[in-house]
Amino acid sequence: MTIDPTLNEWLNLLLRWVHVFAGIMWVGTTYYFTWLDARLSEEEKAVANTGTPAQVWMVHSGGFYAVEKRKVPDLISRHLHWFRWEAGTTWLSGMALLVLVYYLGGGALVDPDVSEISVVAAVGLGLGLLIGGGIVYDLMMMSPLGRNERAFAVIAYLMVVGISYGLSRVFSGRAAYIQVGSMFGTIMAANVWMHILPAQKKMIAAIKEGRKPDDALSAQAKLRSKQNTFMAVPVVFLMISNHFPGVAYGDRYNWAILSILVLLGWVAAKFIRRA
């Protein structure tokens, strides 16, 4: 399928604009709440047994803000704000770009010098990886492995290395990088829409019914959100990697560079979370 070149360029421009800005909002809110939760945890320890609620004071844009965390919010007199469309918009615009740039026509997806795979087979493989990657991730999270963060990280990283190597032998280098980034982004969006938001809705339903929210739901949502912060840093690198063929996807050992930078991204995320 071919698209008029001018229309294609406009679609590419507009989708990238939406994708980048939505991504900024998503990653920004994710890391903001990660920082906020860490500061509130520190305050909770500081005011323990005093009867005083933990608060974090901030100053921004000419105003002062006091934020406190409640296990049971007052749903009757307060309007509850949700943070979900940042993730949805980022993923939808990213998928639209993936289809527009790589899957339609397949010119950027396959490279005859790399493999002789057909465009149809390559598209099927790419979509299969997005779906299969999410399923495998969820199965790992639901298994005993999901309760051991270090073991989970090691096995997940080895899988990323294997996927990176495999894709670099089938797709063009540029497409291999973007496909790994799309897999991360799909897992992150699924975490928000299929796990974090449903858990929050169940907690709210319990409060409305006068029941204590299940702590397991809160822990599950927090863990998924935490893992999103670790995936976000490599995803940003993979989003911009197509601008650096010489030192990234165009290198002979592009899969190794990708793997190393994913690991560095995870390490960076660990330090950013502590900031």
Score class of each variant (00 low, 15 high):
Y157Q: 10
Y157W: 15
Y157F: 15
M159H: 05
V161W: 11
S164I: 06
G166V: 12
S168F: 12
S168E: 09
R169W: 08
V170P: 02
S172K: 00
S172Y: 04
A175K: 06
A176G: 02
A176L: 00
Q179C: 13
V180R: 03
G181P: 01
G181H: 01
S182V: 02
G185S: 10
M188G: 02
M188D: 07
M188L: 12
N191R: 04
V192R: 10
M194P: 00
M194F: 14
M194Q: 12
H195K: 07
I196M: 15
L197Y: 09
L197K: 11
L197G: 00
Q200L: 12
Q200K: 07
K201A: 11
K201T: 13
M203S: 14
I204N: 08
I207Y: 03
K208F: 02
K208G: 04
K208N: 14
E209Q: 14
K212P: 02
K212I: 15
P213G: 06
D215L: 09
A216W: 04
L217I: 13
L217T: 10
A219E: 15
Q220A: 12
A221R: 02
A221S: 14
K222D: 06
K222I: 09
L223V: 15
L223N: 09
S225M: 11
K226F: 06
K226D: 13
Q227V: 08
N228W: 03
T229F: 07
T229P: 03
F230L: 15
F230E: 00
M231C: 00
A232P: 01
V235H: 13
V235C: 09
V235F: 15
F237I: 10
F237T: 07
F237A: 12
L238T: 03
L238P: 05
M239V: 14
N242Q: 13
H243C: 03
H243P: 00
G246Q: 10
V247S: 14
G250I: 03
D251H: 14
R252L: 13
R252A: 10
Y253V: 13
N254C: 09
A256E: 09
I257Q: 00
L258C: 11
L258N: 01
I260L: 15
L261S: 14
